[in-house]
Every structure is written in C-alpha cells, then in structure tokens.
C-alpha cells in the first residue's frame, strides 16, 4: 500500500496541499492529489487561487524523482503566476533542500 496521503484543502482563501508520508516511486502519482500537477494547476486557476502552500510537516522524505516533480511544478505554476510555498519541512528535508539549493527556487516557511 502506498505510503502517502495528499490532501488538498482551502481555508480563508489559502489552498494547502498536505503531504503525509514519503514521496517515492510508489507514490509519485499520488503527490498532487489529482492525476498530475497540471490538473491541480487547472483546478487552482478555476477557483482563482493566488498561491499553493505545500505542507511538509508530516512528509518523511523525497526521492530524486519527487524533487524533479516539485521543480517541474514550480516552472508550470510560475508561468501561471501561482507561486508554490513549501511549509515546515523536517530537518532532514530542509537539509536536502539546502544542498539542492531549493531554498533559492522556492519560498520555504519554517515553524
């Protein structure tokens, strides 16, 4: 059974995708809560969302393909003027993001 729950929710106009579990080859297809990042982007455009917050507080790990999916989404969402903000990565993920210089690509918010 895939070890990931991707939950998209809205509160006071803020759209949050919460990822609980691990992003790996078994779960890439679940990561966006829809069939793809493009489908999620379309949905957010329809509801006129101005950003997407990705809650990583309960995300254990990202494999390299998962990181690529994030990068591709960044490109796609930037073109649509919908920034992606990463929230609350655990220390391991934060270190990974720093090594990969993701902190120079994404806005990352800490607890």
């Amino acid at each position: 059974m895939p070890n990931l729950i991707a939950d998209l929710s809205e509160e006071n106009g803020r759209w949050t995708l919460k990822l609980v579990g691990s992003i790996d080859s078994d779960t890439h297809h679940l990561m966006w809560s829809t069939e793809s990042s493009s489908a999620l982007l379309k949905k957010l455009q329809e509801v006129k969302a101005d950003s997407l917050w990705i809650d990583l507080s309960e995300t254990e790990r990202f494999d390299s393909q998962g990181l690529r999916l994030l990068l591709n989404a960044h490109k796609e969402f930037s073109r649509a003027d919908i920034p992606i903000i990463l929230r609350y990565p655990n220390p391991h993920l934060n270190r990974l993001f720093q090594i990969m210089q993701f902190d120079r690509i994404f806005t990352i918010e800490f607890e």
Partner: peptide
C-alpha cells in the same frame, strides 16, 4: 546525466 541535478541547476539559471 543526473536528472535532478540537471533540472535544479537549469531552473536556478532560468530564474
């Protein structure tokens, strides 16, 4: 040859 490194550096430069 590493896709994730390639994509990351490429994205940083594109930005």
């Amino acid at each position: 040859d590493s896709a994730v490194i390639r994509d990351t550096i490429a994205r940083l430069l594109e930005l």
